[in-house]
Computed example of a mutant assay.
Amino acid sequence: MKRMVFLSFFVLTVVLSKGQSTKIMLITGGHSFDTLQFFQMFDALPQIEYEHFEQPNANAEIANGKADDFDVLVFYDMWGNISQSEKMAYLRLTKQGKPLLFLHHALVSYQDWPEFEQIIGGKYVQEGKRISEDEVSTYEHDVWVYCTIENYTPVTSGFNELRFFDEVYGNIRISDEVKPLLRTRHPKSSDFVAWQHVYNQSNVVYIQSGHDRRTYESADYRKLILQAIKFLDNTNE
């Protein structure tokens, strides 16, 4: 009888856990975007609950410990200013193993904070006083981006290839330590347009696509984002 009660409790626990939502801290700011369609995309993702924070308030909240209330942090910001206390908060989160998902122009953030490049796994290099011309990254709007799967993980599961009418980044820096997920052969793009890696104790995913509503409304893009979030959430258990 005790065995039956235990098994029933175990099955109920499994069923309930499968229905639990992932709570994400969704961070924007510093770059314009199609706001209506962007939030409609997140509204439509099943078993996802999100709270939106805009910079610079988002970083202030992270420094105050707000990120501890969420399962996954999703960055769609392009921000430059970050205080020392905010930097320490980011590093604290990675040491605690907080999962991080970075989208599109988040790769441009914090040009003057070298550690951020290590966290995200790459960098879009903007023009600057001490930046040589051959280091500067490039972009091209409104192009078809055909992506093949470089590595199959829970993020890329179920795809053979992906196609988005989006924006590409060229001449970006990508760490040798990342695991590439998606490759494109677009002539104005860097080879890899998505990757995952680990920084300190945090699992990190970067997905370059996501410039505007035409991508937000793509079923494949929504599936890719959802699988990335669920993968990251599962690594946090």
Results as ranks from 00 to 15, higher is better:
Leu100Val: 11
Lys129Phe: 13
Asp220Tyr: 00
Met88Ser: 12
Tyr221Asp: 03
Glu133Gln: 10
Phe116Leu: 12
Arg130Cys: 07
Met25His: 12
Gln118Ile: 13
Asn64Cys: 00
Ala106Asn: 07
Asp220Ile: 00
Ser218Ile: 01
Pro114Tyr: 04
His197Ser: 13
Met41Arg: 02
Arg183Ser: 14
Ser85Tyr: 07
Phe165Asn: 10
Asp43Glu: 15
Tyr50Gln: 04
Thr35Leu: 02
Gly170His: 09
Gly158Val: 01
Lys18Gln: 12
Gln84Pro: 02
Gln84Asn: 10
Pro99Thr: 14
Asp68Val: 04
Asp43Gly: 14
Arg214Ala: 01
Lys98Ile: 12
Ser189Ala: 15
Val74Pro: 01
Tyr206Ser: 07
Phe102Ala: 12
Asp112Ser: 09
Asp191Gly: 09
Thr28Met: 05
Glu150Asn: 10
Phe165Cys: 04
Ile62Asp: 01
Phe165Tyr: 15
Ala58Cys: 12
Ile229Gln: 02
Phe102Arg: 05
Ile119Gly: 06
Asp176His: 11
Lys123Glu: 05
Phe70Pro: 06
Leu73Asn: 05
Glu117Tyr: 02
Pro114Leu: 07
Glu133Cys: 03
Glu86Ser: 02
Ala63Ser: 12
Tyr206Thr: 11
Met25Ile: 11
Leu73Met: 15
Gln111Gly: 13
Arg163Leu: 08
Asp69Gln: 10
Asp68Leu: 09
Thr138Gln: 11
Lys2Arg: 14
Pro180Gly: 05
Gln20Asn: 14
Asp112Met: 06
Val11Gln: 03
Trp195Gln: 02
Phe53Ala: 03
Thr148Gly: 15
Val204Thr: 04
Ile48Asn: 01
Arg213Gln: 14
Gly128Tyr: 12
Phe159Asn: 09
Lys23Asn: 12
Met1Leu: 13
Leu16Trp: 10
Arg185Tyr: 09
Asp233Cys: 06
Pro154Lys: 08
Cys147Lys: 03
Leu162Asp: 09
Leu101Lys: 05
Gln126Met: 14
Thr156Ser: 04
Asp142Trp: 04
Ile172Cys: 10
Arg185Asp: 15
Leu100Gln: 14
Asn151Gly: 03
Glu237Ser: 09
Leu162Gly: 10
Met25Val: 14
Lys23Phe: 03
Gln118Thr: 14
Leu181Ser: 01
Phe39Leu: 08
Thr184Val: 11
His105Leu: 07
Thr148Asp: 15
Lys123Leu: 04
Glu117Asn: 11
Val178Gln: 06
Glu54Thr: 13
Asp77Lys: 00
Thr153Ile: 11
Val193Asn: 07
Gln111Lys: 07
Tyr90Val: 09
Tyr221Met: 06
Thr28Asn: 06
Ser175Gln: 11
Met88Cys: 03
Glu115Ile: 15
Asp77Gly: 03
Phe159Ile: 10
Ala219Pro: 01
Thr235Asn: 13
Ser218Met: 06
Asn59Thr: 03
Ile174Arg: 05
Val72Arg: 04
Pro56Trp: 00
Leu224Gly: 05
Ile172Gln: 05
Glu140Val: 10
Leu7Pro: 01
Ser83Phe: 08
Tyr146Phe: 08
Thr153Asp: 07
His186Leu: 06
Lys23Gly: 05
Leu101Pro: 04
Tyr110Val: 10
Ala60Tyr: 01
Glu217Thr: 10
Arg185Pro: 02
Asp71Gly: 09
His104Tyr: 09
Gln201Val: 06
Leu103Tyr: 04
Tyr216Phe: 15
Phe75Ala: 03
Gln84Asp: 11
Asp220Thr: 03
Leu7Asn: 09
Glu49Arg: 13
Lys230Glu: 13
Gly210Met: 03
Leu103Thr: 06
Tyr76Glu: 00
